[in-house]
Design a protein around this nucleic acid. Structure first.
Lengths: 211, 211
DNA sequence: TAGATTGTTAATCGATTAACAATC
DNA sequence: TAGATTGTTAATCGATTAACAATC
């Protein structure tokens, strides 16, 4: 149960194990071995066991892991067992896509306040929520006690929006803008590097002369 | 110029260096040191130099790197100097967001054919493109010689769409569905793990009792 | 009990960093 | 020439994997 030295990669893989466990559970199986999990995740079975013991001892020698218990445990470890109110900054195309993205709802992330700095958009309704002026971010999220923000505005405006979120007491930011946000250490930022992914695909194809 | 053992991480960082170089170039600087690049990227300077020499010797001892030349070189190495026609599978919210996503256009990825399996959508026009039936993926991309596909449909339908892309001769897939697509080794898949990112944010906040 | 599979240790592998001769 | 910074080697660090005693 040590939690001060868990590798970031193990946490990332937790999410993968959870997804695989869901599939195995839905298929009606009760137990699963580290070998089976590893195979499905494209990993080594020792790695699966090592990843899991970072969080506790969930297995039974000779038996493996109890699928539904392990799934529920991981869900709880990741804090995905309760609803989390979220503020969305930027109601452009990407923002609107996330507004109706099932993956967020399924994981309990409920978008409760949406903001934009475009005068044309402010005041309009999207998915039942009124688009608010970005200048009111701090006040609004403090009032609603929102602790997670999603940034989907261009890089140039992202830092200023992040500052407003921080002023309002935000704890975590999911950042889609391709810049490294400067935030105090008490705030967690997770970057979604859409452009990098695209550029990597380009690189791999280019290297193999496929473009 | 060896290219059979370049670590995936170095390729990922190439994309970051490119972005930073762009900023330095726009600020009017001519040269930059590995130390400066490292600072901006949050890395060690030795790592920057090591990453770069995988692709060639671009620096001058005592001087550093020529900003614009290095930027152009990286762009070329990544194959981002020419236009790439792309097929989009899934014209839901996410698909529509990507359709008008500037980042794609800026990097030369031009969406030329769009598909969906929803009868209601097929035939409609989005961003000047007619939504086509997913059943016609293979024929269409073969005809248009499209070599890159973006998948934004739910996991359940993603593998079948990937199969059609492969049958049509696709070379690379940018996959937004949270499953590991099974593809022949000649096809490159880059996954965008939106849900994982979200779950990681949840984990970090939960660990610090912030949710 | 025999077979299976865990948690864990030790060995291996790969990536990061420090240090420095080469060189502008 | 003196100062700066590269490319590269060697040392360090961390992550992956193999192997196995413990145990169901």
């Amino acid at each position: 149960m040590e939690n001060y030295k868990i590798p970031k990669k193990s946490v990332e893989r937790l999410s993968i194990y959870k997804r695989i466990l869901k599939g195995i559970m839905d298929a009606g199986f009760t137990t699963v071995s580290s070998r089976e999990l590893a195979e499905r995740a494209g990993l080594n079975s020792a790695q699966v066991r090592k990843d899991l013991v970072y969080f506790g001892q969930f297995g039974t020698p000779g038996m493996g892991y109890h699928v539904s218990i392990l799934h529920r445990t991981i869900t709880k470890i990741m804090g995905l067992h309760k609803k989390i109110p979220v503020a969305l900054i930027g109601v452009g195309n990407l923002g609107q896509a996330l507004l109706s993205y099932q993956g967020f709802k399924e994981r309990g992330f409920i978008i409760e306040s949406i903001f934009d700095n475009d005068r044309e958009k402010v005041g309009k309704i999207k998915n039942g929520l009124k688009i608010m002026d970005e200048r009111n971010i701090s006040i609004e999220i403090k009032k609603k006690n929102i602790r997670v923000g999603i940034i989907t505005i261009p890089s140039s405006a992202a830092q200023s929006a992040a500052n407003k979120l921080i002023k309002g007491g935000i704890k975590g930011i999911l950042n889609f803008a391709p810049i490294e946000l400067k935030v105090p250490s008490r705030t967690t930022v997770v970057n979604v590097a859409l452009c990098e992914k695209l550029e990597m695909l380009s690189y791999y194809l280019s290297k193999r002369k496929l473009l």
